[in-house]
Amino acid sequence: MPRFKFPNGVVVELMKGDITTLEVDAIVNAANPYLEHGGGVAGAIVRRGGWMIQEESREWVKKHGPVPVGGVAVTGAGRLKARYIIHTVGPRCGIEPIEKLNDAVVNSLRKAEELNIVSIAFPAISTGVFGCPYDEAARIMAKAIRREAPGLRSVRLIIICLYDDEAFNVFSGVFNEELKEFKESKD
């Protein structure tokens, strides 16, 4: 499991697994603008965490309107082991610029700081039905984390949780390249 440690103590870990089972303060949901939890990570969050997450998401949209690409919304986490779900809307590749993924990651980390969150888990945002290639998404996410991590005060652990072997292998390769000077040895 690739692990990186920044000088200020922030740790970034990549793991393969189901993000809905993690015991972290916040799970990032790869959301659509209307926070409808149909499939992918969003669907899995509601299946495991309960319908109350969908209801709270709909209330958020009624009150604030659709979440813009790169924007965030926060709800409770229902029956998940997390305290919060930070819903972020990544770009739909071929429709919005993939660079908007940077905003989704940065705004999620900044919202985590506002909430005094210590641990946060991200999926491979925009790589499912939004169609972004793993390598490009991984590079943007790694660079965004690299820029934001030195300024984080409450967030100490950032997990990138990848559902399958292909995503894990591609993200691991990119993060090993982009964050190589922060890589912890396995000794």
Results as ranks from 00 to 15, higher is better:
residue 185 S to G: 14
residue 75 T to Y: 03
residue 54 Q to N: 08
residue 132 C to E: 03
residue 177 E to I: 00
residue 86 I to T: 12
residue 115 L to V: 03
residue 68 P to E: 08
residue 170 V to G: 04
residue 167 A to W: 07
residue 107 N to P: 13
residue 158 I to H: 01
residue 162 L to F: 05
residue 2 P to N: 12
residue 167 A to K: 09
residue 91 P to M: 02
residue 22 L to R: 13
residue 89 V to I: 04
residue 27 I to V: 14
residue 162 L to A: 04
residue 16 K to D: 00
residue 32 N to G: 04
residue 24 V to T: 01
residue 121 A to D: 00
residue 88 T to K: 04
residue 62 K to C: 08
residue 22 L to V: 07
residue 154 S to C: 12
residue 96 E to P: 02
residue 46 V to L: 09
residue 16 K to R: 15
residue 43 G to M: 05
residue 121 A to F: 00
residue 40 G to E: 11
residue 175 F to K: 06
residue 65 G to L: 09
residue 103 D to C: 03
residue 62 K to Y: 09
residue 88 T to R: 02
residue 47 R to E: 15
residue 181 E to G: 08
residue 36 E to V: 15
residue 100 K to D: 00
residue 151 G to C: 08
residue 73 A to G: 04
residue 97 P to F: 00
residue 149 A to R: 04
residue 161 C to P: 07
residue 23 E to N: 14
residue 23 E to K: 15
residue 13 E to A: 07
residue 122 F to H: 00
residue 148 E to M: 08
residue 29 N to Q: 11
residue 91 P to D: 02
residue 35 L to Y: 05
residue 139 R to I: 04
residue 31 A to C: 12
residue 146 R to I: 06
residue 148 E to D: 05
residue 81 K to F: 06
residue 110 R to M: 14
residue 59 E to F: 15
residue 79 R to N: 15
residue 25 D to V: 00
residue 148 E to P: 03
residue 59 E to D: 15
residue 184 E to D: 11
residue 165 D to N: 08
residue 171 F to I: 05
residue 116 N to T: 13
residue 39 G to W: 07
residue 102 N to C: 09
residue 139 R to A: 10
residue 66 P to K: 15
residue 161 C to K: 05
residue 98 I to C: 03
residue 79 R to P: 09
residue 37 H to M: 05
residue 2 P to R: 05
residue 131 G to L: 06
residue 152 L to W: 02
residue 123 P to F: 02
residue 7 P to R: 07
residue 161 C to G: 07
residue 102 N to H: 14
residue 171 F to W: 12
residue 133 P to V: 04
residue 148 E to Q: 11
residue 117 I to K: 01
residue 45 I to L: 15
residue 146 R to S: 14
residue 181 E to D: 12
residue 178 E to Y: 09
residue 148 E to W: 01
residue 34 Y to K: 15
residue 11 V to G: 01
residue 95 I to V: 15
residue 147 R to P: 05
residue 9 G to I: 01
residue 140 I to R: 01
residue 67 V to D: 06
residue 66 P to F: 12
residue 168 F to N: 00
residue 66 P to C: 10
residue 161 C to A: 14
residue 183 K to D: 09
residue 147 R to F: 13
residue 90 G to S: 11
residue 60 W to A: 11
